[in-house]
Design a protein around this nucleic acid. Structure first.
Lengths: 212, 212, 212, 212
DNA sequence: GATGAATGAGCGTTCATTCAT
DNA sequence: TATGAATGAACGCTCATTCAT
């Protein structure tokens, strides 16, 4: 596979991510995608299977990276509070830096065929499972105090995922500031008032795993 | 207009809300919509303008109701903490009880033509403006303490809106419990530790405005 | 049949004539027709059979009137030149005063089903037969001198029929002047230089047969 | 563009000209057109823009050719009588040899959108302007004597255009004979008795400009 | 590797017409 | 007499995909 082939592969993938995020899977036509990738619609099929395959690949890659990052943080984590803060920072950074991919993951589950949806859902469940264990561990250790463990976890994830829906790289706050604010609010939500030192490791992990 | 006409109107609207929420606007075909409403695709056009008109109406109605409810709560609110808790309860209740409509509002902005999107965005901005004023008032009065006012407001809304994405009427927690948990977490996020009495007024308001 | 029924009948017919002339039979929708007649599309069907029936009736009525008028002129005619001039005046007057109906007759033959087209063609042939007999009689009597009898007849009719395509009641020339000019040119075309007195009988006949 | 592409282009155009002439623009369906061109309805769209675009192109091409031919004749014309005879021969030949295209031009103006109609009308006006100048020049030079200049011009054009409505290549008269008959009648109509030599240049010009 | 040509299926929408009220 | 409601069929057009070159 020549370098230019890989370039084209990435142009196609990039165009798909952008368009699927902007217009949705069903709202994006194959010709539109081809034009955005600088190819004819027939040529597109040298670089992908079907439109559905492309979507599936995007979603799976994105979720695998999230799971990978989360596992790394959990393995090297100190206590529940520190680990949860790291997860929040990582999740926020990923949803800000890879806004389009994560939006696709969040919005286009419904566009998948049942079989493929199951695969993707398994990945998403694996990711959420990591969060659940931390939240539950923190509650068990009475580091966290919440009205309801499950509701807290879901609310936490929705809050952090939402960053992808409003983040702009041109905003006044830096990504580090936004991530720290979320970490602080997350711990506050969980009734944990211990102040934590700022730490950019989780953000660095995102850039490592997703690429520059 | 006979009663059966209004019934059919509502069947069409109901089918649209359900399908648009489930499959997305672009993922829902006119014939599918017609079948769900128990009509031929031609008959559908007695009860709606275009498919776009139907989407627009759904989104606008939903947002107008949210704005109406929010204004009522703000007008009758005591202080920032009490008002914010009421807003949270109302928003959560609306997103749980009217899950499908609110999902459509959240996901299908991009399916609107620019002109109509502007209208809908103006409504959404009006709604968010109400939240902003409460959050800012609470911060000014030092009832709330947050890392960043804007980030806090956005995170809060994402957290509460997210209920529409996971709520199930068959869950173990009652809606009141979920709403209260969110109110408590919201205030915790905002650094406000004063305990608030539970209050079902905001939820009752939702059922009043949206109908049983 | 009440007077108002006849009024409505005529409103429907009038709207059809106008719209079929302006937009063509296939270019005119039944709802458009209903709106122009001030009725709902369902009510339209109290005043007509099908859209095709309406077209057929318009065309047949128009051609029957042309045949009637032509026969009256031929029966009371003096010689070929006088009779031909009268036919020209009548034809021009009918195509100016009943511009829309005659345009429909000329343009919409193709929209008829074969069976109905045959009926209408028989009427048209009857009308053209009258012209043919006059032209041929004039040639036989050496009152007319033309390069080719058939070509002359066809050219004559096209010239006179064309009036419906350009006549405007707001033009500077009166209908009498236009009719006389055509009569003069027709005779000139036929190589007949005898000057003829102007005579408004043929025009009066048109207003008599077609109504005011 | 391969030869077969051009062939298909012409098959599509040819089918459109034939069907639009026979059944009218609104009376011709896309599937009917596709079948006549030997393609699927989807493939049709490789060879045309919209159905309207196709109609517009047919009408504009036809009118541009008429204008081109007329200008060539006027530039090389001797006097008003000779030039007018040449115009008549050319117009008649074009309307006989390109019967279908000219019928489309004459009948389908109303099917165009206002903007496109304006373009086409400008071309038609340019063509009619050429005729007007010749008729007026002949009248000014007292070569022609007519009841009314404008009426004469309109009648002349209608007579000659009408050829498209009745000409058949299987008729007993040759095209040259028909064209000459019209030239003679036209001059007679205009009160011009000078006999003119027959001349096939105008007809040759038509076959040159329109193709064999 | 790249694409013009091709298409069956389906899109959202409108058609002329019928019928119960 | 009048019309809302209803529909099967068709409208013009685009879809994702394939394949020969």
């Amino acid at each position: 596979m020549s370098p230019s082939t890989r370039d084209t592969d990435e142009r196609v993938r990039g165009a798909a991510v952008r368009l699927f995020a902007e217009k949705g899977f069903h709202g994006t036509g194959i010709r539109e995608l081809a034009e955005a990738a600088g190819l004819s619609s027939a040529s597109l099929y040298h670089y992908m299977g079907t439109k559905h395959d492309l979507l599936t690949e995007i979603m799976e890659t994105s979720l695998i990276r999230l799971v990978t990052a989360a596992r790394r943080l959990v393995e090297s984590g100190d206590g529940p509070a520190e680990t949860l803060a790291a997860l929040v920072r990582m999740h926020v950074a990923a949803h800000a830096l890879r806004q389009e991919e994560t939006i696709v993951v969040d919005n286009e589950l419904r566009a998948l065929t049942p079989e493929r949806r199951d695969n993707v859902l398994a990945l998403r469940d694996a990711y959420e499972h990591i969060w659940r264990e931390i939240v539950e561990a923190g509650c068990a250790a009475q580091v966290f105090r919440v009205p309801d463990v499950k509701v807290a976890r879901l609310a936490l994830l929705e809050m952090c995922t939402g960053v992808a829906r409003w983040y702009s790289p041109r905003g006044v706050l830096s990504l580090t500031e936004i991530a720290s604010a979320h970490a602080a609010m997350a711990l506050a939500m969980l009734g944990c008032t211990t102040p934590l030192p700022s730490d950019d490791y989780a953000i660095a992990l995102v850039t490592e795993i997703w690429g520059a």
